[in-house]
Design a protein around this nucleic acid. Structure first.
Length: 677
DNA sequence: AGCACGCCGACT
DNA sequence: GTCGGCGTGCTC
């Protein structure tokens, strides 16, 4: 607009959905040539006096905004913190999930630390002054990116042929699902990690060796530790760790270094998928079925989905690796979006003992076959015993025939407080005062599932003189040594053993399978498989009390057989991941208005709205669940987002009168627990 | 979020 | 005629 003056398109820091678009500002004379895309700026907003912060997304010659432009007030920092790739990613991911780009940027960009930044910039300036050939700054990335990639680190290590081939496939945009090998691996410093970590580290290193960056996202810090140690063992430089345990200063320093135009490896938790990466070659996600990879903050985007979007946008490779496979990953394999490389991963021998359990009459007793296995294994090393997490309701079975006790009215699960008292149906609430087994007419139930502490006591009695340790959520153990011992662990809290376990016993499979969730089967396979992977190569893993297709799938390792059946069922019933879902919550009229916007869209159906319990500090509202086919995703998200923006306008005045803004519209896409109680 | 604008009822 | 209630909508 102004002659000679550039126009900056700015994304403001604001959680308001109405402000989630670009605003144009004039670049003042004093800042001409200084302002670059990605920088943080201060701008006047809604009056000349009040200010807002934001990121410069683009610089253009003229604005197509009708009104008069204000001028940028200040340049906050010369560092272009928001790379064009991350900006595009935030926009696309937010659009897909009905959220604001700002919500994603909060995960992508750490809080600025002025001291850290000054120190970093000073060190860089000094390095440039000392060298004839100044290192290019982040701003020159675009120019640099057109040059041929030059490996900064050539593996002095012995990357073998399959690893190099995989890396080549990935950096040219290949997408794969990998079942990782079971068993342990020893690092040069003598430490033991999972073999999966050593293998994944080599794959990431192979990507780096091609001159590309690689991002690896893992669910929790224990996984992260193993991968970071494995990379360290390989002597890979330029590994940046991103996790929630770092101090703000540390995190910001890593972030600044990852903005530099040099290939690097990012190892981090779910938000690592948003990290800046020079010349991104591949994104790897470990164990994508782990709920920790689902972001708990709005717009609740799962790292898997963000990785899918980012790999597509940057034409980077994509790896979903794990001992097991999520239904989502299986679906992507089935539709041909992912490929499975030809390989036969090492796998622990699995044995089922369902029959033994059936004959075992005493409640809560450890099956005879399991006792034998544990005794033999204890002769050579530590033995892992996996039990259900505390808080799991005990399973009620017929005392005589061991069939599950179900409600006479609706066949739902019965909850018993004691062996003798009456049961209550967890689905329909009917009290089963005179329960009778539907198979053998016996009248008494037995409660299965003892809890970790009781299991410890049982093993202490059964194996006098043997060390018995407990690792649970409250007091987790990370690692145990190679000496014989019994380690009782709640699922997910299993320590790893130096050299691997001599035996693994999965004790509460039946009880875990009784959880009333859509994903119970997938979750169980993941818990069992991850425990089995902790065994040493010659050892075996015994799963007690589980038969049927899921037991077979686990015993043979052919998880895909079970997953395909499961997916077929979900397709039939329109459950995710066969379809996508969005939960629409708020006051009834608001939810109805939002859902009404979807009328006439094919491939979309709506469940509800139905009342939901009042959240703390909120009045009871309603929730509708929208189910839609994948191709409708963009349209559904944009229409619901439209309803959200409209509601936000009204909600301000409602809040002034009513006191709070309760009842305003909330959206949540692809919530894995949306169908669970 | 705040703040201006604008459209109805009650007043000097 | 004008003042001011608050619902509606915009913020470059």
């Amino acid at each position: 607009m102004t002659a000679g003056g550039g126009v900056a398109r700015v994304l403001l820091d604001s959680a308001l959905p109405q402000l989630d678009h670009l605003f144009d500002y004039r670049v003042p004379e004093a800042l001409l040539g200084e302002i670059r895309p990605g920088q943080r700026v201060r701008v006047p907003f809604r009056s000349q006096q009040r200010n807002a912060f934001g990121y410069v997304i683009d610089l253009v010659a003229a604005s197509d905004f009708g009104g008069e432009l204000h001028e940028i007030t200040d340049l906050v920092s010369t560092v272009p913190m928001l790379t064009p790739q991350v900006a595009a990613l935030a926009r696309a991911v937010a659009d897909r999930a009905g959220g604001s780009a700002n919500d994603i940027l909060r995960l992508a960009i750490p809080a600025r630390q002025v001291r850290v930044e000054k120190k970093y910039l000073a060190a860089r300036a000094a390095a440039e002054a000392a060298s004839d050939d100044p290192a290019p700054g982040p701003a020159e990335e675009a120019a640099e990116a057109t040059a041929e990639p030059e490996p900064t680190w050539d593996a002095a290590l012995d990357l073998n042929e399959p690893e190099r081939e995989l890396a080549e496939l990935l950096v040219s945009g290949g997408r794969v699902a990998i079942r990782a090998s079971h068993g342990p691996a020893q690092l040069p410093n003598g430490e033991w990690v999972g073999r999966w970590a050593a293998d994944l580290a080599r794959s990431a290193a192979a990507v780096l060796a091609t001159g590309h960056s690689c991002i690896v996202a893992l669910p929790d810090y224990r996984d992260l530790d193993q991968l970071a140690d494995a990379l360290d063992g390989l002597g890979v430089p330029e590994v940046f760790r991103v996790d929630s345990r770092q101090s703000n200063a540390e995190r910001y320093e890593r972030f600044l270094r990852s903005l530099e135009p040099a290939p690097h490896i990012i190892v981090g938790n779910r938000s690592a998928v948003y990290a800046p990466a020079y010349r991104l070659g591949a994104i790897m996600v470990w164990d994508d079925g782990d709920p920790l990879l689902a972001e708990p903050l709005s717009p609740y985007v799962h790292a898997r989905d963000a990785a899918l979007v980012r790999a597509q946008q940057e034409e980077a490779g994509l790896v979903f690796a794990g001992h097991t496979r999520s239904a989502e990953t299986q679906r992507l394999l089935d539709i041909g979006y992912l490929r499975e490389p030809a390989q036969t991963p090492a796998r622990t021998r699995v044995v089922l003992s369902a029959q033994t359990q059936q004959r075992d009459q005493a409640p809560g007793r450890i099956p005879e076959m399991a006792i034998r296995m544990v005794r033999e294994a204890l002769a050579t090393g530590p033995v892992l015993v996996q039990v259900a997490a505390p808080g799991y309701a005990p399973v009620a079975v017929c005392e005589r025939c061991h069939e599950r006790a179900v409600c006479g009215a609706c066949a739902g699960p019965l909850a018993f407080r004691s062996q003798h008292g009456p049961g209550v149906c967890r689905w329909c609430g009917t009290a089963a005062t005179r329960w009778r087994c539907g198979f053998c007419q016996h009248e008494r139930v037995q409660l299965r599932g003892a809890g970790a502490t009781r299991t410890v006591e049982q093993f202490e009695r059964q194996f006098p003189g043997v060390r018995v340790m407990l690792s649970d959520g409250d007091t987790p153990i990370t690692q145990v040594d190679a000496r014989p011992a019994l380690i009782v662990a709640t699922r997910g809290a299993e320590p790893r053993a130096a050299g691997g376990y001599a035996g693994v016993l999965l004790l509460d499979g039946e009880r875990m399978l009784a959880a009333e969730t859509l994903r119970v089967g997938e979750d169980c396979l993941r818990w069992w498989e991850n425990a089995a992977a902790l065994a040493r190569p010659q050892a075996s893993c015994l799963l007690a009390g589980v038969a049927g297709p899921i037991g077979q799938a686990f015993a043979t390792g052919r998880l895909e057989d079970w997953l395909r059946e499961e997916l077929a069922l979900r397709r039939e019933l329109r459950y995710p991941p066969a379809v996508r879902v969005a939960a629409v919550t708020g006051a009834e009229p608001v939810v109805r208005a939002a859902v009404a916007k979807l009328e006439g869209l094919g491939g979309v159906d709506v469940l509800g709205p139905s009342p939901v319990a009042a959240a703390p500090g909120e009045p009871a509202g309603v929730r509708a669940i929208v189910r839609f086919d994948y191709p409708q995703g963009a349209e559904v998200a944009s229409r619901l987002r439209g309803a959200l923006v409209a509601d936000a306008a009204g909600s301000a005045s409602r809040a002034r009168r009513g006191g709070n803004r309760a009842g305003s519209l909330r959206l949540r896409f692809d919530d894995r627990g949306v169908f669970d109680a």
